[in-house]
Amino acid sequence: MLETAERSAYGSEHEQFRATVRKVFERHLTPNLERWERDGIVGRDFWRATGEAGLLCPGVPEEYGGPGLDFRYNAVVAEELGYFGSSAGITLQSDIVADYLIAYGSPEQKERWLPGMVSGEVVTAIAMTEPGTGSDLQAIKTVARRDGNHYEVSGSKTYITNGQSADLVVVVAKTDPDAGAKGISLILVEADREGFARGRNLDKIGQHSADTSELFFEAVRVPITNCLGEEGRGFAQLMNQLPQERLSIAVSAQSRAQRAFDEAVAFTKGRQAFGKTVFDMQNTRFTLADLKTRLQVGWAHVDWALDRHVAGRLTAQEASAAKLWHTETLWAVCDAALQLHGGAGYMNEYPIARIWRDARVERIYGGTSEIMKEVVARGL
């Protein structure tokens, strides 16, 4: 269990919420986690259970069915989800897609989609990456051509979290292919539209229960009222929202690192070698002391970043630095923790194996570590 009593970012109301999160996860997540890992997808009943308990989209205003809470409540869910060892896509919905609708959606779009996102009846995804385009969003080839009072969306996307489950997809597309970044728009595409198709549920190294898919758009007709915000402002909207996405990833990475460390401590204290526990060996104790120190620094930084973000002061460079540091730290902690398990660490029956596999992608999605360094460097 995460130790949070001395955290500076949270008050008693957040800890009461955390207690609810833990109860819901213990009841609806833990008993199903291995099955979801095998199936490659989280059941819709989990989405509804988390929605009913008030865990989804805490920032949605009350007028659209949400509680209208600040991002620290999102962070509580992200921390607990990471520590429980799940890669369920609920944080993508709560921390990323919901805020695009809150910030840029029309009243009609908000009324149509936000209540269902809060309740878990609606699952969402955001489609940025394409088969030939990753971090360079200006190079996307998916287009949304105007045809009267409709767009026709054509193209393909890949590595889309919640791709198999999504009822609604926020598609990054070019409404003016000749205008560069100023020609990019965000288009809402309902999954039941003719011409929309899901590809296979992609076979990944880790995060197996997070359905991740290819998506195809073949002249999918949607009304121009499905444009999210102003046409041609999509790239600016993406840049404005990326700091929260990257902070969310950093928070998750920190909690996953803590779980890896806790697993290593428990295992080394229980495993005998050469007449004593592995924990009693100096190399083990020194390794764990180093990891403990990194985690102490990490939690202080998470709280600092959360306070900055809630106050509206977290910059793009600071969020990128947080994502860079915490995901790289996660990998270092996971790898060291697995090593301390010895051969057992390579066995899937031990939690550290899944934690280690799931950790690898966090240095890639949401912007690679190399891109994070570039963003930080631009602010020097």
Rank of each mutant, 00 (worst) to 15 (best):
F84C: 12
I205Y: 15
V60H: 02
A321H: 11
T50P: 03
H150L: 00
K269G: 07
A322P: 00
N149D: 15
E349M: 15
G366F: 10
R44M: 05
E231H: 06
E62R: 13
Y104S: 08
T315P: 03
Q237H: 13
M1G: 02
D147K: 13
T124S: 14
L291I: 14
R271H: 11
T287C: 06
S213M: 02
Y83F: 11
E245K: 13
V361G: 06
W325S: 12
N32A: 11
V77Q: 07
E218R: 07
M347E: 11
K269W: 05
L288C: 08
G132F: 12
I352F: 05
S252Y: 14
A377L: 13
L29Q: 03
G298D: 09
I205L: 15
T315C: 07
T175E: 10
G65P: 01
G116L: 05
R145H: 06
V251Y: 08
V172M: 15
A353E: 07
R354D: 10
C227V: 12
G40T: 08
M239S: 14
E121D: 14
A78G: 07
E79S: 10
E362T: 11
G366C: 05
L137S: 00
T124A: 13
S165M: 14
L55R: 01
A305L: 06
E328H: 06
T50W: 02
A273N: 09
G345Q: 03
T175K: 06
A125D: 00
A353Q: 01
L2K: 06
A5Y: 03
G11D: 12
T133V: 15
L137V: 15
V122Y: 03
D307P: 05
F267V: 04
T161L: 10
A49T: 06
Q109S: 02
V171A: 10
E362Q: 14
A359W: 05
I41F: 06
